[in-house]
């Protein structure tokens, strides 16, 4: 089964530590060790970096210093030889959606050298229901509704919100209005344009009993199928899982705060306590670049 393969691959990535470069060529992803890729010199300027699941306000055993690890993650971005055009945060910026936690997070995120930040909410950011704190701070780009699109260096970016209005026992959901908006947004794009879609919860089904998926996953995949180069990014599960379906690569990011168990291991998707020396190997960011061949390439970097 695909999921099992993905999890095995994810473990392989975790074990590599230094990072793995995924190159997209004719719709097929190939994994190359980062050190090897660097010597080949074909890694282009980073288009953007992905930061996820910072959970500012969390203070339990799994990581008593989440502000420290977010700062380390940002330092890692700031020391990249070429600064990315912008950063995205794929949600769970805060742990409990309080104004104080958002203030702390924004202070730290403002130290990014790249000044542009695009953020989508995680369910931890909207526990008040309407997500007032989140949208007051990050909702301007979308007129307060959260989902929007923009273009950068020829790539079309789509930010989606799948953490509002959960149904009992359900997965993440876009809802009818957003799904219609997405269909219209993508309709006018040429199939040759590279597409990057990002949201907080997986936009594909990873593990339904824990809600690791999105109700409209099949509709979304159908809309993206005609494009030649697509990357779909999310956070939420605090570990890397990846799969490729035709020209679409689905990739989940590590957290900057704490790891979570693999799907179905233990009672639920809560913080996973690991030996202190191992934590940095399980936290990190992702960097997406366009290589010299004009293809999207994805690199994961860990804190340690």
């Amino acid at each position: 089964m695909n999921d099992k393969t993905s999890r095995r691959d994810a473990l392989k990535c975790l074990g590599m530590g230094a990072g793995t470069l995924f190159t997209l060529s004719s719709g097929v992803f190939g994994a190359v060790d980062l050190a090897e890729a660097a010597t080949r010199g074909n890694v282009g300027a980073p288009l953007f970096v992905q930061i996820s699941d910072s959970h500012i306000g969390f203070n339990k055993d799994a990581n008593p210093d989440v502000t420290g690890t977010l700062k380390e993650s940002i330092a890692m971005v700031n020391t990249l030889p070429v600064q990315p055009g912008f950063a995205i945060h794929t949600g769970d910026i805060t742990h409990l959606s309080t104004a104080e936690q958002f203030d702390t997070a924004q202070q730290i995120l403002s130290t990014l050298k790249t000044s542009e930040l695009h953020a989508v909410p995680g369910e931890h950011d909207v526990t008040d229901g309407p997500g007032t704190e989140f949208f007051n701070r990050f909702g301007k780009a979308s007129g307060g509704r959260g989902y929007y699109s923009f273009d950068s260096q020829g790539v079309h970016f789509v930010a989606l919100v799948n953490v509002m209005n959960f149904k009992a026992g359900g997965l993440g959901a876009l809802g009818d209005d957003q799904l219609t908006w997405l269909k219209n947004d993508l309709a006018s794009r040429p199939a040759s344009q590279p597409i990057v879609v990002f949201a907080h919860m997986p936009l594909w089904t990873i593990y339904e009993p824990w809600g690791w998926g999105t109700a409209e996953a099949l509709d979304i995949a159908q809309m993206l199928r005609r494009f030649g180069s697509v990357i779909v990014l999310n956070g939420h599960i605090h570990q890397i899982v990846q799969k490729t379906e035709g020209n679409i690569t689905f990739h989940t990011a590590r957290s900057t705060a704490y790891p979570q168990p693999q799907a179905g291991v233990g009672p639920g998707p809560g913080p996973l306590k690991v030996p202190a020396g191992d934590l940095g190997k399980m936290l990190g960011i992702s960097s997406i670049s366009i290589n010299r061949a004009g293809k999207l390439a994805l690199t994961d970097k860990t804190l340690a």
């Binding site: 959960f166 026992g169 997965l171 809600g211 998707p269």
Partner: peptide
């Protein structure tokens, strides 16, 4: 009254 956890909607 049915209720859920809005963070983990699998909880009902």
């Amino acid at each position: 009254y049915k209720y859920i956890c809005s963070i983990h909607p699998q909880m009902k």
